[in-house]
Simulated assay, not measured.
Amino acid sequence: MTTARGFLKPCFAVAGIAAVIAAVAGWITAGGPGAWGAPAGVALAALGFAGSVQAVAAAEKIDLRLTLPMALITYAFKLVVAFFALWTVQSTVPNALLPFACGIVGGAVAWLATQAVWAYKAKIPYIELDQPS
């Protein structure tokens, strides 16, 4: 899994660029609340994806069969956190809700696109080359 986690650095780099773009777009469209809401949404998406990677990698160290249940658990947890964050932003600073939500979507798209490009270019064998005996 260490090799398969090589996409984290490029994904975080693209998420950082997306956060800067989101801050500018948020400032232009919604002023001050948009300037912090949009990049906060990007950060939430990036941290959610990175947390999932770490949780699945930890589960894989215990037993490979735990990776799917852990991925499903982290997905459900991320949804709860995202909905709670959206509710919190809506109840405290309603003007930042739309930029925050757009930041989450933009961050997810940026992360997934970067990960897809990395996976397409990666040299990952389909079989285990070093079988322990």
Score class of each variant (00 low, 15 high):
G34T: 06
K123P: 04
D63A: 13
W27C: 14
G31F: 06
E128N: 02
A58E: 08
P39N: 13
D130Y: 08
P94I: 07
T114F: 02
P39L: 15
A25R: 06
A22S: 05
L66A: 04
I124V: 15
P99K: 06
G34N: 05
G41D: 05
Q54N: 13
T88Y: 14
S52D: 14
V53H: 06
I104H: 06
F100P: 07
L68R: 05
T88S: 10
N95Q: 14
C11D: 11
L129G: 05
A23N: 15
A45S: 02
K123C: 02
G16K: 11
S52L: 15
G106D: 03
M1A: 10
V89H: 11
F100R: 11
F83Q: 12
G26K: 07
F83K: 07
S133P: 13
F77T: 10
P132W: 08
M70P: 01
K61R: 15
A18H: 14
P39V: 07
A116I: 00
F100C: 12
G26E: 00
W87M: 03
Q131R: 07
F100H: 08
G107R: 04
K121F: 01
A101I: 12
L72C: 08
Q90G: 10
F84A: 04
A23E: 14
P125G: 01
A15I: 13
W27I: 13
R5Q: 14
T74I: 02
G32T: 13
T3S: 10
V93C: 09
V80W: 15
A35Q: 14
A50S: 10
I28M: 14
P132Q: 05
F77D: 14
P99G: 02
G32M: 14
I28W: 12
G26S: 05
A59Y: 00
A55Q: 13
A43H: 00
A71W: 05
A19Q: 00
V14S: 10
G6R: 13
A50P: 01
G48N: 03
A76C: 01
L112K: 04
L72I: 11
I73Q: 08
L86C: 09
M1S: 12
K121P: 00
P33E: 03
T88L: 07
V89P: 03
F83G: 06
V53D: 07
A116T: 02
G16S: 03
P125E: 10
A59V: 00
A122G: 05
P94R: 03
S133F: 14
L97D: 05
V24F: 09
F49N: 02
A13E: 12
A57S: 07
D63H: 15
A116Q: 00
T92V: 10
V109G: 08
L79A: 03
G6M: 01
